[in-house]
Amino acid sequence: MPDRRTFIAGMLAAGLAPRPTWADAGSPAFLSAGKKPDGAYVLCGLTTEGQITFQLPLPTRGHAAAAHPRLAEAVAFARRPGTYAIVLDCITGREKARLSAPPGRHFYGHGTYSADGDVLFTTENDFDAARGVVGIWDARRDFARMGEFPSGGVGPHDIKLMPDGASLVVANGGIETHPETGRVKLNIPSMRSTLSYLSLDGELLGQVRLDKAHQKNSIRHLAVSATGDVAFAMQWQGDLAVDLPLLGVHRIETGRLDLVERASVRHMSGYLGSVAIAKDGKSIAATSPRAGIVQEFAGAEYVGETSIADVCGVAAAASGFVLTSGAGLVKPPSGPDVLHDVAWDNHLIAI
């Protein structure tokens, strides 16, 4: 008898089955890129308990991914400054489409679908003009390029769909780079990051700029609560002896901005890798692979921290948080830790 994946693939090819959902891919809760011991790169589906439901090959190192809201389909993004993204059928492993950044652009490793899954938005570098853009791709037509609009800053990294389904939030890291100089940061003395809120057609709806003291704080990664609160993780580009916060929470409805003092440059080695907000919106977790620490907060109040070597990926489960590390660890909110022969990359993406 054929296995479930082969059977479904055959049914689809014959036009006899409905479009498959994530349940047909083993009901994963998360996506993560990783590296195998033989050097091969993969994209995996993971359950809340840390089990792998599928493992699909990638041509080079992945960074983050975007999960389709209904279909068992994921877009795997190359690590910055990659110029490709691959759309994968997570049941058959088939490459459904490959996105190539237009001339003069590269991806930043992140993207998000619209609420209905018809459109994909990607963060990109217009490197000759030193400006960020959001690329628009038509998921209904083999991911044809539909256009782009300004991201509201320089160096857009993470991007999330807001709960209203009609707007986006973008972490503009503020750092200018160019492919000719690789990952060299070209404008640190004058950099300035922004948190930008944009309509789906590119209108700038609002923006957060940190004060002068935080000018070298690069806003990189985002988490959004069901009520629209945005937690943002930063990476410091200056002297590591300072004690400025690396974690912020912005509430767009009230305009309130809280910076979380305990998640500091000195304590977290100047670097937050990922951030997540609990399902109930009451707590936040932030990771630092450089410090080997995950911290948890109730709002802006410190709850506690745990030391885990090379911890970076974090995502909310039904209760608590799931964590991943570069050593292959998956730490569920309850139950035993699971160790895989996969060096997990930076991010754990909730489906």
Rank of each mutant, 00 (worst) to 15 (best):
H178A: 00
G174N: 10
G313L: 02
A9G: 11
T123F: 14
S334M: 04
T194A: 12
G147V: 07
S167N: 06
S325Q: 09
I284P: 04
G45A: 09
G34C: 04
H340S: 00
S334G: 02
K96T: 08
G155E: 07
G155L: 04
D337C: 04
V154T: 15
A309K: 12
D158P: 02
I219R: 04
V184L: 10
A327C: 09
K331L: 12
L205P: 03
L43E: 07
K35Y: 01
R94Y: 02
V303N: 10
A300K: 07
R80E: 07
V224A: 00
S325I: 05
D258I: 12
C44G: 12
R4L: 12
G248A: 08
L12H: 09
E261L: 10
F30I: 06
L58P: 10
L329T: 06
Y113I: 04
S319L: 05
S151G: 11
W22S: 09
A166C: 05
S193F: 04
A40N: 09
A17Q: 13
P179K: 01
R131W: 02
P150R: 01
G82A: 02
A278N: 14
T47F: 03
Y84A: 13
V154Q: 09
E180H: 09
I8A: 03
G328T: 07
F149K: 04
A14D: 08
A23H: 11
A101T: 08
A298N: 14
M268D: 03
A129R: 14
H106E: 05
S218Y: 00
G132Q: 05
R220T: 07
Q235H: 00
L58C: 08
A33W: 03
